[in-house]
Design a protein around this nucleic acid. Structure first.
Lengths: 126, 126, 126, 126
DNA sequence: GTGGTCTAGACCACG
DNA sequence: GTGGTCTAGACCACC
């Protein structure tokens, strides 16, 4: 379900966050679905407990999941169109675009990259 | 000429790199133009010698500038259409786009963000 | 494992780079093998953290090693047939050869030096 | 007569030394030929007096040239087959070869580079 | 524990 | 004056 890249400069906890958000957006996880406990996921991915905990804490702060003590962790209602997430994604993409322009990429090159990435993304989504 | 944001998570040396790249792309710095000496820029920005040096060393490794010991540092020929940097920027933007789609942004939203960022970027060039 | 020459004009960080490259080429270090942590190697060689770090940073930029923050540093896949490094070595050797011819060495003298250096190099590998 | 490369990491004074040695080996300069005075060469190449002085001092220490106060500077007798030069060239080439092997170049690749450089060198010599 | 960044200050080679 | 190397020691994020 979750695939990690040890080599990436993206911290492990951030990779977990991103992939869970992605599963929500793609509809693989729906509102009130249960997700694995911190300990279970840590064991499954051979990670330190604290690494998974940090990912879950961030997701809860973003309103993507909620925890019920003694019950488990679940996808929050409205997670999919959560504004916090979209705002953050927009601002992150904004700085990435700025830096792309700074590197000398043209607007046309960037737009065709958008198209390309979009079709690849739709293909992954089945 | 160079403005730093101390509170940013982006390392200072990276901010310097980015802004110099930007000045090259915008045409404010041209081939064989001299850029400030490491020590002069460090003093101007109240930074340590080594922080500026790291920025310059990275830019030289990327073929954007070249240094002549005892003389100073200069914009390299072909700095603007340097492939190393464009490739890197393309792949970074690709993952940013992927994560934007994952967060539920639509293609239209992203394209209008591209347009918006583009005009903001060109406007900086006055 | 690594032997430094303090009196050499070759910077210490470069000596470390060269010797690690050499260990890879000789097969003493293989893909995904861990190499000593920056701090451990610095302590072992009585060097400053930053000196070893510079060697490692250069090797990573050249694609010979990769680092995982919090985990350590490892030999990259394909480190041994890295083109960046071979190209650089070829051009450096080219200028060295040119200057050897300029000094009046004959082709035969040079070829026998190649043979001699080759056997010495392979002998180091025991 | 002498062409300098400002960009090169090779110090200017070393470039002067190398090119004068080359002219001797190629026979363009013969024993007891006069070479330009330090001041004249510095002016011709737009260099600092001390830069040329250092090159000449090194060449004199190597027995390639000699100075007669009030007369000028001349190519030494036996400069062409000066052992100091050949020994130094041999040892420099030796380390260059060692580092080439360390970078993963094979003996065959190196030998063909020797052949190639040799023919290029003979062609320059007219 | 790991690596990443930054500062303060030193000495060197080069021009 | 320029850049190049190195040390000593600090604080941070991640695991």
């Amino acid at each position: 379900m979750i695939v990690l890249n040890n080599r990436s400069k993206v911290p492990i906890y951030a990779q977990i966050k991103n992939q869970i958000m992605e599963l929500v957006v793609l509809g693989a996880l729906n509102e009130n679905d249960a997700i694995p406990s911190i300990r279970a996921l840590a064991k499954e991915l051979s990670l330190n407990f604290n690494t998974v905990k940090k990912a879950y804490a961030d997701l809860e702060a973003d309103g993507v999941i909620y925890t019920v003590v003694g019950k488990g962790t679940f996808i929050a209602e409205g997670a999919m169109d959560n504004n916090t997430i979209k705002h953050r994604a927009t601002s992150q993409l904004g700085t990435a675009l700025h830096s792309a322009f700074s590197s000398g990429l043209t607007k046309d090159q960037i737009i065709s990259l958008v198209e390309e990435t979009y079709s690849k993304f739709r293909k992954d989504d089945k």
